[in-house]
Write a protein that binds this DNA or RNA. Structure first.
Lengths: 191, 191
DNA sequence: TAAAGCATGTAATCCGTTACATGATTTA
DNA sequence: TAAATCATGTAACGGATTACATGCTTTA
């Protein structure tokens, strides 16, 4: 049910088409939530039928821009105030980190290096956005607050990835293990 | 396909039943990945048919403990080394933070206070686990590394939630807004 | 005029949750 | 002996991705 409220909230700020929303979900707010156009269009249809959003503008190529209605804004507020957030985590990079003991240390270090670079790249992106941020309106201030969460957690995870890589590199040095192990593949002894 | 490899990796460390795995996914590694028993049992069946895991022990009440086979361990390694991690993020608390401008500042601050407490509770849990951690085996060292990611990101996000709450509290003070706004509900002016 | 980009939709499939269903063993 | 816990499974449903499908408009 989160996509529903994400759309409602985004369209409360300014009118957008399904196309605009899909673009948003694949770029700026991809660090928070994401969705494909194939999921967005049907949901917009349902929201319109329920009277929570309405078409406020029609453009070329059948473009329809929607905006959230008063009832729609009430619905978002009721969701925010009346339901508990789902705090379930599914973090594939961390799942992989959990299984790195199955590789030889040099390979593990290489994968953590890639993680490090991914975090560094995101952080740079966030920092650039933060520079040009004008917190003029309430929505923009909220956006800045979310961006701050991104900045802080990417910094933390960048530091972590570097530290984690060093753990495995220390093992590489000690054991003298190679990046490409023998046919029977490194450690991980059978019970 | 991540659950598949999560099971393979976990069963490479020590034999476990579907029940054990379900418990693990609902407690210790819930901060990284999660799954219900209804998803686990069929997947174990498929992995067994593929020869990637095998029953190594049978117990009371039809209990079956599985362990990863040599082919299974090769499969995890191939996954780790040969595929890019899915770094897609879906963070409902942050999505909500993005929409907090729709509430009056006092309500927004209250929600952020709850977030703060959720992060503090997780952090405490992680810290307690870290205290009693014995990094004796390679899997345990990998577990400690993942725990470190939890510690660092929860600290970062706890600090963030506090800072974010203070932003909205500052607005509360300035505007003198109440927790329960007038019937037309606070700010968020219609275009 | 061709390619790139804008724009909307549907269908098939997969992953995950909730609910349904059952029964054995241990503990109070 | 009743309740709690261990233990395994299936079915229905909903949410999300990939693939299929179409066509207009702008720009090079």
């Amino acid at each position: 049910m989160s996509l529903r409220h994400a759309l409602l909230g985004l369209l409360a700020e300014r009118p957008m088409s399904g196309y605009d929303l899909a673009e948003l979900f694949s770029t700026s707010i991809a660090n928070v939530w994401s969705a494909k156009h194939s999921q967005i269009y049907p949901e917009l249809g349902r929201l319109e039928s329920s009277g929570l959003i309405e078409v406020v503008e029609e453009g070329p190529r059948g473009r329809k821009a929607y905006a959230t209605t008063a009832a729609g804004r009430d619905e978002v507020r009721a969701w925010l105030l009346g339901t508990e957030p789902d705090r379930t985590v599914r973090n594939e990079p961390l799942l992989r980190a959990f299984l790195l003991w199955l590789l030889d240390p040099a390979d593990a270090a290489a994968l953590l290096r890639a993680e490090e670079e991914a975090h560094a790249a995101r952080l740079t992106g966030f920092e650039q956005r933060a520079e040009h941020w004008s917190p003029a309106s309430p929505p923009q201030r909220a956006g800045r607050i979310v961006l701050e969460a991104g900045l802080r957690s990417q910094r933390a995870l960048l530091g972590w990835a570097r530290w984690a890589r060093e753990q495995y590199e220390a093992q590489t040095d000690r054991t003298g293990a190679q990046s490409v192990p023998s046919p029977t593949q490194g450690q991980s002894p059978r019970r």
